[in-house]
Amino acid sequence: MLEAAMIWNEPNNKSHWDPGLDPDWMIFAETARLAGQAIRAESSRLPRVLGGISPIDPVFIMKMGERGVLAEMEAVAVHGFPLDWNLWQIHEWPAKLAEIRAVTELPVWVSEVGVSTFGAEEVQLWGLQRTAQLLAGQAPRIHWYSLYDLPRAWEATTRHREAEGSSYYRHFHMGLLREDGTPKLALEEFGRHTPALGLCQWFNFEDHRLEDAVTWMKRLGIRHLRTGLSWADSFRPDALAWFDRQMRALEEFEVTVTFCFTPEHRGPGQHHTSPPYEPLEFAQFCADMVRRYA
Rank of each mutant, 00 (worst) to 15 (best):
P183L: 01
T273Q: 11
L125C: 02
T256P: 06
F253G: 00
E155D: 02
C200A: 14
F259S: 04
D180F: 04
C200L: 14
A241N: 09
A4S: 10
D18W: 00
S111L: 12
A136V: 02
G119C: 10
I90M: 13
L50T: 11
D84E: 08
V108P: 00
E252L: 01
R248G: 14
E251I: 07
V103M: 06
F60P: 11
C260T: 11
A71Y: 12
L220E: 00
E164F: 01
A196I: 01
A4T: 08
P195K: 01
Q37A: 14
L125D: 14
T194V: 10
A249C: 08
R219F: 00
D180N: 07
P268I: 06
R178H: 13
V59Q: 10
S111N: 10
H16S: 07
H271W: 06
R219L: 09
T262Q: 01
V113H: 13
D212N: 06
Q133M: 15
A153T: 15
T256C: 12
R67V: 06
Q270W: 13
V108T: 02
V49Y: 05
H160S: 13
A196W: 03
I100V: 15
L2V: 00
D149F: 08
T131Q: 04
M73Q: 04
P183E: 03
F285A: 02
S43D: 15
E74D: 15
R248N: 15
D207W: 07
F235M: 06
E92W: 13
W109K: 08
L250F: 05
D18A: 03
Y293I: 08
R152E: 08
T262G: 01
W25D: 02
M1W: 00
P183R: 06
V49W: 01
W231S: 00
V255Y: 02
P23L: 05
E281I: 08
H173K: 12
E254N: 12
A98D: 15
L147T: 04
A102I: 07
L87H: 14
E3A: 15
P19Y: 08
E72G: 11
M1I: 04
G20Y: 10
E251H: 12
A77W: 04
H224R: 11
V59D: 13
M6C: 14
T104N: 05
K14W: 13
G127C: 03
A294Q: 04
V290Y: 04
H79W: 06
S167N: 09
R159H: 10
F60M: 07
T194C: 12
I7L: 15
Q89A: 10
V78C: 09
W126H: 07
S234A: 09
E206W: 12
E189K: 09
V59F: 10
